[in-house]
Computed example of a mutant assay.
Amino acid sequence: MAEVDQFDSALDLLRRLDPKHTSEHLNSLISLVPSLTEDLLSSVDQPLTIARCRTTGRDYLLCDYNRDGDSYRSPWSGEFETPLGGQGLGGVDDQGNNEGAGEGAVPSERVRDMEVRANEAFDVYRELYYEGGVSSVYFWNLDDGFAGVVLLKKVATPSGKSEGTWDSIHVFEAVDRARTAHYKLTSTVILHLSTGNDNLGEMDLSGNMTRQIESDLPVEDDTSHIANIGKLVEDMELKMRNLLQEVYFGKAKDVVGDLRSIASLTEANRDKATHQEMINSMKR
């Protein structure tokens, strides 16, 4: 009998569970099999958590890419800090070494300068496209370039029983070449929508989508990197939003429309009969 791969089994289980509670399911799996902690945290995208920078007072987003132990690095101050209440999942740096709070790996001076400019650029992007929400950008060094993640979160203002949350996670690598750079972008959108009223009851639509692209773009200086990354993220978000609206939402609307109706079944059958009678009369 073939040996069961615990990691593959855990991922398969997470795909079959309600995506709205991914963080809870992930913590449960980690408590059952602690040896899978780092593999699961680095492979499973979770809804983003908001924290406030103690130095600047600005909100930023927590994820595995700016975490070291119970500490998270603020993109605004560049320093590690432990959020109130703690997260308690442990962590490693880019080299796989466990480190204490406040001692995590930080980007080089050049990469940190680009990180600061990227945060400023995507803060404008967030305001223009999302009209609110929180954004954070984190960079780190690679041997032949640099990598990073662009995070965006928007929570819709609840109205009655309706609520919604959008989390987008864009992880990229930029490999420097002569006058160009090769970019590899992996984007994930985590969406949760719920609504309800007396006629239709409650409906919950949750899920995630991941897409990946690679592209070679011209580079003159470090500013070009910021513009290139911004263009890639903007184009990818537009494609994924259109795909969600046209395919996923459209399909969900068709399924719900076939299963549920505000009108009574008697009225629907009467309308159907009238429609068929008109068609038959036109054929005579």
Rank of each mutant, 00 (worst) to 15 (best):
I226R: 00
S136V: 00
H170G: 04
G148T: 03
I190H: 11
E173K: 07
V155Q: 08
R179F: 07
T186S: 09
F146D: 00
F122G: 06
T188F: 01
E131G: 13
V124A: 14
K161W: 06
N141A: 04
H170V: 00
L217E: 10
E173Y: 05
F139A: 07
T165P: 05
A156N: 12
D176Y: 10
Y129Q: 13
T186M: 12
Y125R: 13
T188L: 00
S136H: 01
G196P: 06
R126W: 03
E115N: 06
R112C: 00
G164S: 12
L191E: 14
D167R: 05
I169T: 02
L205K: 07
D216S: 11
E214N: 10
A156C: 06
T210P: 03
L217A: 09
T180M: 08
Y130L: 11
V219T: 04
T188A: 03
D198S: 15
E120T: 06
D204A: 14
D123H: 10
V134D: 07
A181G: 01
Y129I: 09
I213N: 10
M203R: 14
T195H: 15
Y138K: 02
G164A: 14
Y129D: 14
S162F: 13
N228Q: 01
G145D: 01
T157F: 14
H192F: 09
L205I: 10
V171P: 00
V111M: 01
A178L: 11
E127T: 08
A121Q: 12
T157D: 10
A178N: 10
A181N: 02
V149L: 01
V189Y: 11
V137W: 01
L185V: 04
D143T: 15
S136R: 01
